[in-house]
Design a binder for these strands. Structure first.
Length: 493
RNA sequence: GGCAUCGUGGCCGAGUGGCUAGGCAAGGCUCUGCAAAAGCUUGUACAGCGGUUCGAAUCCGCUCGAUGCCUCCA
């Protein structure tokens, strides 16, 4: 029996504003679409947080036994620098600035994106489609919307008619906006603007002669609007209605609102059952964004080459830091917070490592079965990873007590504890052991074990000058010795 | 200006009517040749002001502050 049948997952649905029991469209199967990056520059840490949240969600759904089709797109066309009439495609702009073919820009930053995500131990999505690979599908959707009379063509561009759509649908229901408020608060319509109303958005944009990225269409050469690609690709791979649509909070309006409008206009019904939005990562209290310069690249964190943090941090530490906050909360990055997370992460990992070598007793002093369900309850409550981690630290405490001999654990419970810990730490949270089994670390541990032997002999002879010298000089190299009841172990910082 | 969200102990962060997470840091104790590590333990926080209630950090109102969206952004 798959796990999901015995666990009751609740998901916060941005559309209803409530936590709802998760019931997929087809039992046992989940379709999930997440808006991926626009590959016009290096992925920054804020981007990574959103994708990491959904990576965790993907992992937990799989862990529950669902067969998940996870689609995360690559936006390689159609994303304009701004909404003005002379709006330039982000990729095309970057290509012009760097004197590259647009697809060189796309290739370069797609590779960067994948490299960084791999370091963070992301699972690859089931399908990673590109906007440029689905131009035909996008054109087909535009045709349908035009036929329904909910879009209009002007000068080779096609715009979605928001006012007309709003007559029979409700535009703004996801972001909690009313069309009349939006109209009331809009700045003066630009005189050159060819749109009927500022709220209308582009489905297809005419390509000016100098525009390199262009495709033929019934309305002339041009390129698709940004919002359309997600509708085209989610429909193609997940159907007209699918279970989960995710993305960053900042995409709620207008991007996701427009997706709903496009789908409802084309198919006559709402496309998504559960809308999920991951919150922003801030730094120094401000949103991280490429446009403001308030951002840090993951690579700069891993190497320590940045002016914000005091030292380098491993990808798993950053991941742990992010998992300590709920995905719907704003999280603020700081040096102190990362330092605290690093210590917590190390303590957790050390406990996981010692788990296997614990001695067993006839009975257990803590109820592993109850604890295990508490872990599931935390995750079932809208993927509450901070609560899960709190429970994991409960287990850490018990593991250390058992190691010291203050508590006991039965052989069966030990197996259960080990399996559960490893499932949540590695499979669900996606953390990784550091320094596992490489040749270098094997050689290092051999050398350190030798020094530990020498130090023990010195201590036995009460030659504390020698024993302390070994300990202190190893410490200076970042190797910490720990004297326990069972002998001396070490950690590398 | 409009629409949202949020304001929790030294720091980071859960919780959303009574039982009041967790991590890091700090103090005390145990262990130790001394340390470190580990364990035990202490600290009683919810922006302010009103209101509802037997009881509110949690609900309502107002004030102040922060952030996000309203134009591209994960």
């Amino acid at each position: 029996m798959p796990l999901y049948q015995s666990q009751s997952l609740q998901i916060y649905n941005s559309l209803s504003g409530k936590k709802e029991p998760f019931e997929p469209l087809n039992e046992g199967y989940v379709g999930m679409y997440v808006c991926g990056p626009t590959v016009y520059s290096n992925v920054h840490l804020g981007n990574c947080r959103t994708f990491m949240s959904f990576d965790m969600i993907f992992r937990y759904l799989r862990h529950l036994g669902y067969k998940v089709r996870y689609v995360r797109n690559i936006t390689d066309a159609g994303h304009l620098v701004d909404d003005a009439e002379d709006g330039e495609d982000k990729i095309a702009k970057k290509a012009r600035l760097e004197k590259l073919e647009p697809m060189e820009v796309v290739q370069r930053y797609t590779v960067d994106f994948h490299t960084i995500l791999e370091k963070f131990n992301f699972l690859p999505p089931s399908i990673e489609p590109t906007a440029t690979g689905h131009i035909i599908e996008q054109i087909e959707i535009i045709k349908v919307i035009l036929e329904k009379g909910l879009a209009y063509e002007i000068n080779g561009s096609v715009y979605f008619d928001v006012a007309k759509f709003n007559e029979h649908h409700s535009y703004g229901k996801l972001s909690g906006r009313k069309l009349e408020d939006m109209i009331a608060n809009t700045r003066e319509l630009n005189a050159q603007d060819e749109k009927k109303s500022p709220q209308d958005f582009a489905l297809w944009k005419k390509a000016e002669p100098q525009h390199i990225m262009r495709w033929p269409s019934p309305w002339g050469d041009g390129f698709p609007g940004w919002h359309l690609e997600c509708t085209a690709m989610s429909t193609k791979y997940l159907g007209e209605t699918f279970d989960i649509h995710g993305g960053g909070m900042d995409l709620k309006f207008p991007h996701h609102e427009c997706e709903i409008a496009q789908a409802e206009a084309s198919y006559g019904h709402s496309p998504v059952r559960y809308w999920m939005h991951a919150n922003m990562l801030t730094m120094n209290g401000k949103k991280m964004a490429k446009s403001t310069g308030n951002n840090i690249l993951p690579g700069e964190i891993f190497t320590g080459e940045n002016s914000i943090l005091s030292k380098a941090f491993a990808p798993s530490v950053v991941r742990f830091f992010m998992m300590q906050a709920h995905y719907t909360s704003i999280l603020d990055l700081s040096n102190d917070a990362l330092l605290a997370s690093e210590k917590g992460y190390n303590r957790l990992m050390e406990a996981v490592d010692t788990l296997g070598s614990l001695e067993t007793a006839s009975k257990s002093d803590f109820d592993v079965t109850v604890w295990k369900q508490q872990c599931y309850d935390a995750m079932n409550d809208d993927f509450n990873t901070p609560i899960l981690i709190a429970h994991l630290f409960e287990a850490v405490k018990h593991i250390n007590l058992i190691k010291e001999g203050s508590e006991g654990i039965s052989a069966t419970d030990k197996e259960l504890l080990k399996d559960t810990m490893e499932a949540f730490v590695f499979d669900v949270l996606g953390l990784e052991r550091k320094g596992d089994g490489t040749d270098d670390s094997n050689m290092l541990s051999g050398v350190v074990e030798l020094l530990i032997q020498l130090r023990m002999e010195a201590r036995a002879n009460k030659d504390f000058a020698t024993s302390d010298k070994i300990r202190d000089q190893l410490a200076a190299l970042g190797i910490q010795l720990k004297d326990g009841k069972e002998g001396t172990t070490f950690t590398v910082s």
